[in-house]
Amino acid sequence: MVAGIPTLWLLVLFLIPFIIVFRISFSEVRLAIPPYTPLLSWRHGAPVLQLHWSAYRFLFTDTLYVSSYLYSLKVAAVSTLCCLLIGYPMAYAIARSDAASRPVLLMLIVLPFWTSFLLRVYAWIGLLKNNGVINNVLMYLGIVHHPLALLQTDFAVYIGIVYSYLPFMILPLYANLEKHDGTLLEAAADLGARPLRAFLRVTLPQSFAGIVAGSLLVFIPAVGEYVIPTLLGRTDQIMIGRVLSDEFFENRDWPVASAVAIVILLLLVVPIMLFQRLERRQLEAAK
């Protein structure tokens, strides 16, 4: 019973919904409520499963979709890399600081997460706008004479994603780095390795699991990100999450929206499975 209730709940509200999305992606759009051909049609008293490929065919004929997928992957990859480059030294510094200040520093990293995600993204509008804080400061200092176009650029999206997902990179990295045995570095130094070499040969390889976990935690949701590109991003090139939402709400084309979702999942299935394996191993290690 302990396992049964949550399993049943997730079956109904998590797994079955995906099966429905999968099925609808093989339907055809039509003007009705709901706006797709029935999932099962009845012929001579027996259910007939009819699969239409039109939604998928559509995805690969209109360049909008392919370019949105590629753009989303690029944005997610660049943002993940930036998160790693910024987050790793931060996690390292926290793990190496004295035991008393560690919880405080961690709290400082997590605290923004407890305040609204939406409002934190919104804050960047005020900073990045043409007459926003950053441009005002730059012009006041005489560095630029005309406001820089910062908002509605790729740069703004990177900033938004890095800003929002940085804690998800830092926490697994910290959890990993904190467990490292300090005497290993001492041993490396004792054997003649200079600090940078000791870091590259001892610390970095050991923290690989943390790097992968943190990167996946940023990359996977970033691919489907909707709020950040909508508020901060370009209008001529939209990310795939936005495409899905628009297909669904604006065009009311549920089969195409479903097909978009299925293809996103296909792209993410490898990273997601990788992440789950890491999680499992970590839990086992905790035991």
């Binding site: 509200l13 998590f14 919904p17 999305v21 489907g224 549920w254 996103i264 993410l268 997601i272």
Partner: peptide
């Protein structure tokens, strides 16, 4: 484990369709 990393648009869409 899956809902944690699932892109929100997909979770949202699938739940509505359900």
């Amino acid at each position: 484990a899956a809902p944690i990393v699932m892109p929100e648009v997909i979770t949202g869409l699938s739940l509505l369709l359900l």
